[in-house]
Amino acid sequence: MPDRVGFDITTARTGFNTFPERVGLDILSERVGKQDPHKPEPARLVRIDPMVEDHWLFQFRFVEERLNREFSYRPGQFVMLSVIGVGEAPISISSSPTRPGMIELCVRRTGRVTDALYRLKENDLVGIRGPYGNGFNVDKLKGNDLLIIAGGLGMAPLRSLVWYVLDNRKDFGDINLMYGARTSGDLLFKNEIDLLLNRKDIKCLLIVERVQYEHRVNWRGHTGLITDLFKHVEVNPKSTYAAICGPPVMYKFVLQKLLELEFSKDRILMSLERKMKCGIGKCAHCTIGYKYTCIHGPIFTYWDAMNLPEMI
């Protein structure tokens, strides 16, 4: 055995510097606490609103009451929702941070996880972690006019923004909302949209490709494609931010219109969708160029989008 006079393994342990000092990476000093960013917090499904077929609204509350008070977020951010035993999926938050106490997620039934979510009953346990992503920089939007353009399920994240700005109405200029869907029966948040149509402090324009028979009598919108609505609004591109969310095909035509109106490219904000497995900039599934949709997005300016290959 080698001579170990005066040597004690326990001192070796204490002498063993912790890693940050050993390697001297500044980035590591950011390590705070030992919390695990992958750990979902238990939450309960408290209410299901089957708004439109396969587009239901789910309301959740954290089991731990403190979290219901402390969970704060920006419009446009998302959470990772775990359906226990099935998996995890990124879902944008539909509720507004101005109305705390619960989280609302409008979820399209489109894969294994969301399919399983539709099988849950009220009071069932799920896991939620977040909020993630940049969200809309609402401080930057303050003092500006807003043109909010939603197509189909794109209303889900934008509903958060709509209620945020309406609840802080004095901070913003003119607000125009354009909302398009395939048919009048596909419009999400119908009751709220009716409220918006009656409000004077937001101009809410609806457009569908087809008005369903049962909606004909009271139809208060237009028919056609979302770009047809541009002739009904007056926007000053110098003082307006456009916030867009919708199916990929919609972006192309809407962007064209906005550019025709001479919007600066960084005044066009778009919410993008990608596959995500972590939400925290590690798993690399959502990378677009050098950006991670989950941490640098999901809200990107059109300038970013142009400069990133594969963006749309």
Partner: peptide
């Protein structure tokens, strides 16, 4: 040391560290 950077940052991966 490159992996250190990836797993560090705002969302620190505790298992790795």
């Amino acid at each position: 040391s490159i992996l250190d950077k990836v797993f560090a940052g705002r969302y620190h991966e505790p298992r790795y560290f």
